Simulated scan of single mutants.
Amino acid sequence: MRTARNRRDAASMRIPASVPRTAPATVPASAQVSATETAALAASRAGVRIQPAEDLATLRLVSRFLADVWQTPASRSPLPPDVLRAFVHAGGAVHYARDEDGITAASALIFGPPASSAVYSTIAATRTSGHGVGFALKQAQRAWALDRGATTMVWTFDPLVSRNAHFNLGKLGATAVEYTVDFYGRIDDGVNTDDETDRLTAVWPLAEPPPGPRADFGSAELDPRPAPDGEPFTARDETGHWCRVPLDIVALRRQDQPLAAEWRAAVRDALLPVFDAGFTATGFSRSGWYHLTRKDPS
Rank of each mutant, 00 (worst) to 15 (best):
T104N: 10
A251K: 14
G240L: 08
T38P: 00
W242C: 09
P213Q: 02
L247F: 10
S18F: 04
W144R: 01
G190H: 12
F157I: 06
P226C: 09
A251L: 12
A86N: 10
V83S: 07
I187T: 00
F279L: 04
T201M: 09
R98Q: 15
A265T: 15
G212E: 12
A46W: 07
T26K: 10
N164V: 10
A29R: 14
T36K: 05
A220I: 11
L56K: 07
T234V: 12
M153G: 03
D256N: 15
M1T: 14
Q71E: 14
L200K: 02
H131I: 04
W144H: 05
L56M: 06
P226H: 06
R76T: 08
T239H: 09
Q51Y: 13
L271I: 04
L169C: 10
S287H: 12
L79T: 05
R199M: 08
K171I: 11
A118L: 01
D195Q: 12
R21Y: 14
G240T: 12
A277N: 04
W263K: 06
K171E: 06
G170A: 13
V83R: 14
L79E: 05
D99I: 02
A140C: 06
T293S: 15
D9W: 08
T151D: 01
L200C: 03
L292H: 05
S18V: 14
N6V: 11
T104R: 13
V62G: 03
V133P: 01
T26I: 06
V19C: 01
N168S: 12
D269E: 12
G170L: 10
P113G: 07
G112V: 03
E262D: 15
G130Y: 00
M1E: 13
A67C: 04
G185A: 01
E196A: 11
T282K: 01
A227E: 09
P226I: 04
L272Q: 11
T151Q: 06
T151E: 07
T239D: 13
F65Y: 09
G288V: 05
N6E: 15
G91D: 08
V161A: 13
R85E: 13
A143I: 10
R286G: 15
R49I: 11
T104Y: 04
R127V: 01
P78C: 02
Q51L: 14
L169V: 10
D9M: 15
T201C: 11
A251R: 15
A46T: 08
P81V: 04
S30L: 12
A136V: 07
F157S: 07
R2G: 10
A124T: 03
T152W: 14
D55F: 06
V203Y: 01
R253H: 10
A74E: 09
A235V: 12
R186M: 02
P224G: 03
A106M: 05
V177F: 00
E54C: 11
A90D: 12
Y120C: 00
K295H: 09
R49L: 05
S30V: 13
T72N: 05
T36F: 03
I249N: 11
L172T: 08
K295F: 04
E231K: 11
A136K: 07
A261D: 15
I15V: 15
R163I: 13
W144P: 00
L41A: 15
F111K: 09
R49C: 06
V250N: 08
A251Q: 15
V19A: 01
V245T: 13
S30Y: 04
P113M: 12
T122Y: 01
R45F: 08
A215Y: 08
Q32S: 08
D248E: 14
G102N: 13
R2M: 13
A42N: 06
E178L: 00
